[in-house]
Design a protein around this nucleic acid. Structure first.
Length: 270
DNA sequence: AGTCGCGCCTGGCGGC
DNA sequence: TGCCGCCAGGCGCGAC
């Protein structure tokens, strides 16, 4: 489900309830996630206090004094803060129970997400291979052009590549390419020098706007308070194949790139 | 080193 | 109503 704006929306929603709270229990109902949850390592957080909730790429970091719990929401995961006695539903796999009577509840029907301890080698390896944050200075047109100029793959694959820029998934990649007027199948190496400027601008803009609107709810994404995100109404192309282009009114087309649905306007994007 | 395609899962939807 | 195939917001990994 979540791309960076949805993860950031979750972070902002849960942090006020969690900060400075002591963890009194961690209930793992189903630890068969993307990687098996290391119960022993994760439950070492019981009795510790949460200093802050931060985010790197699409990972949420529940920061304790010496280490963190690293949570990824995968395709269908979400986090909500509920009273600790709320009966769990079928896909509520993990509860982080807090001293204040609330609990952070992790729901993930498809179980593509993960809960790792920052002490696990896998966790450090995952974090170490990430490229720049899209909203950071480090992600700029020089960087993007440098990354593109040798690559034969379609530009869409590049902006979805975590080593080039993190957090841009299928929705926002599709939207950004429309806004930049670049055809998603265009070979990255054929991008002329000034187009990365436009592309970095629109990636930043689309991510920022989606964050202010609480992310995109397609099906079941909810903010921490259970409300949907409102960016869906701003989508220009994603999920609109066959419908008129908002610019030229001709029908939008669909193709598949890297096994992901890709919608574009063949007249406005080249 | 870059690129490709697989597979991890469940659920919802459209077609028959 | 029921079954079946297809599709879905991610992403690491092994194979070339």
């Amino acid at each position: 489900m979540p791309e960076l704006p949805e993860v950031e929306t979750s972070r902002r929603g849960i942090e006020p309830h969690l900060i400075n709270q002591t963890i009194t229990d961690i209930v793992i109902r189903n630890g068969k996630l993307r990687w098996p949850v290391d119960k022993v390592l994760i439950q070492q957080a019981i009795g510790l206090t949460i200093n802050k909730i931060s985010r790197r790429a699409k990972y949420l970091l529940i920061e304790l004094s010496d280490w963190s719990i690293m949570v990824h929401l995968g395709m269908s995961g979400s986090l909500r803060v509920v009273p600790k006695d709320t009966p769990p539903n079928k896909h509520d796999h993990i509860d982080l129970v807090l001293w204040n009577g609330l609990c952070l509840r992790y729901t993930d029907p498809r179980r593509f997400g993960c809960w790792l301890s920052s002490k696990q080698d896998r966790a450090t390896k995952l974090l170490n291979t990430l490229g720049p944050e899209p909203l950071s200075e480090a992600f700029n047109s020089d960087w993007l052009f440098g990354q593109c100029k040798q690559r034969q793959s379609p530009i869409k694959q590049c902006i979805m590549n975590n080593q080039i820029v993190v957090g841009v998934g299928n929705i926002y990649a599709t939207e950004a390419l429309f806004l930049a007027g670049i055809h998603p199948s265009r070979k990255a190496a054929s991008i002329s020098k000034k187009r990365p400027t436009k592309l970095t601008e629109v990636i930043k803009a689309v991510i920022e706007k989606a964050i202010t609107q609480g992310g995109t709810t397609l099906k079941d994404f909810t903010q921490a308070d259970g409300k949907p995100g409102y960016f869906k109404q701003s989508l220009m192309v994603y999920g609109r194949e066959g419908k008129p282009c908002v610019t030229c009114n001709k029908p939008l087309e669909k193709t598949v790139l890297g096994q992901r649905a890709t919608v574009f306007c063949k007249y406005c994007q080249n």
